[in-house]
Amino acid sequence: MKISFYILWFFLYFFFFASGQDKYERDRQQMVDRQIEARGITNKATLSAMRKVERHRLVPKEQVKNAYQDRPLPIGHGQTISQPYMVAYMTEIIRPGPGMKVLEIGTGSGYQAAVLAEAVDEVYTIEIIESLGKSAEEKLNKLGYDNIYTKVADGFYGWEEHAPFDAIVVTAASEFIPPPLIEQLKEGGKMVIPVGAPFTTQHLMLVEKKKDGKWKTKNLLPVRFVPFTRN
């Protein structure tokens, strides 16, 4: 009797756990199909990464149910986890691929780092707020990412020991671009910076460092606002 009771519990547990996992898997695939691919993201490495990373395991507990919704979510400390589409857009811009080394300034929830880690060889990520940095490190370790290197520090100085980087993603942008970051970007490398108040990323800034060491910035619009459509 006792054994059959345990067996019943065993099956029930796996039934619910597995169906829960199925639900997240289903939500994630739908997210990629409807929110990302449908909006024009075509880079295969990016799409594949977005399909793999378990976003629901990187958001705060109370946001798990919203993890695959088409919007940014609050993660505390006045910070947000970006809208999935924005993460995909930023990842696509740097043209991720094997052999690449990427620096991220502003680990936040760790989601962007995880997506990058699926598409490139090494991701170095820096967070200035200790509690956010530690929490993201713990979650990323649990998810088994061994190519993400985290550190709690001031992102102003970048990560000189591992420079130069093929790309830099500055998710915690400030009023200026720290000169050390420009220096730590490889010639021909790209730096991408989302610009907007929390919950509202409205445009991206792309800095391209040319082969001659010079640079050019470009304003990119993930959501294109076209005035005068009514006329």
Binding site: I128, D154, F156, S174, E175, F176, I177, P179, I182, T217
Partner: peptide, 17 residues
């Protein structure tokens, strides 16, 4: 120790902030 002031700094600038 980590607040810095350089609003809209030129990317050509390579000195301290």
């Amino acid at each position: 120790p980590v607040l810095r002031y350089a609003p809209g700094l030129s990317l050509s600038y390579t000195g301290d902030i």
